[in-house]
Amino acid sequence: MISYLANPARFERLAKYASPIFALVSIVAFIIGLYFALVKSPPEKYQGDAARIMYVHVPAAWCAMMAYTALAAASLVSFVWRHPLADSAAKAFALPGAAFTFLALATGSLWGKPIWNTWWEWDGRMTSVLVLLFIYLAYMALWAVIEDKKRAARLASIFAMVGFINIPIIKYSVEWWNSLHQPASISKLEANSIYSGEMITALLTMALAYTCLFGWLSINGIRRDIAKAKAARPTAPAATATITEL
């Protein structure tokens, strides 16, 4: 599928239809998800209604990590095959990903205050998500500051791949260090026992909403890049060579 989409013209044709679909699904998913989150699902056993912020916080964290994984994958493709579409994709993934990370951190803070009585704690997971935010920011800075965009693409892709080491650290940080954060809660075995069906529906719907929002933003970012490249379509080469025998 990736090689099929790699042709910019084909991508543009597909994106024209995919973009509004993503937007629509995202809006619908948000409506359903928020309904489940705020109305239908039961208040959490110990935390009461305050826990409802989980429905914003947890999917945001998932999407932040998913976005970075996509960014790192696009960077790998860009580094190995030097495909400009991969560059555009990686660049487009960055801002939405950073926004999700910030959202996760902010809502996590808001959630933490009433429950744990602290805005912040330097435990493994929170610190590594903060590190993720810094990596996103540094990545975007690389693109912005380096004038030669071809070199910027290359250097940014190297940086993004190195930064990927942070993702497993986020994932396993809660297992390696027992601290404030509760261990990963959605696993197939426990799902039915601890969380009611409505809660899981709410979480998954919100995750879908975020993902589609991410997809919509990214696709439009890539389309903008393609349009810019098309507009700057180069003219004939500046010089020709003639070889003569002396």
Binding site: A239, A241, T242, I243, T244, E245
Partner: peptide
């Protein structure tokens, strides 16, 4: 400069 006995070529880049 042409060098005696050596195969010399010249490549000129000219602006179109």
């Amino acid at each position: 400069p042409r060098m005696n006995g050596l195969r010399t070529r010249q490549l000129i880049l000219k602006a179109t």
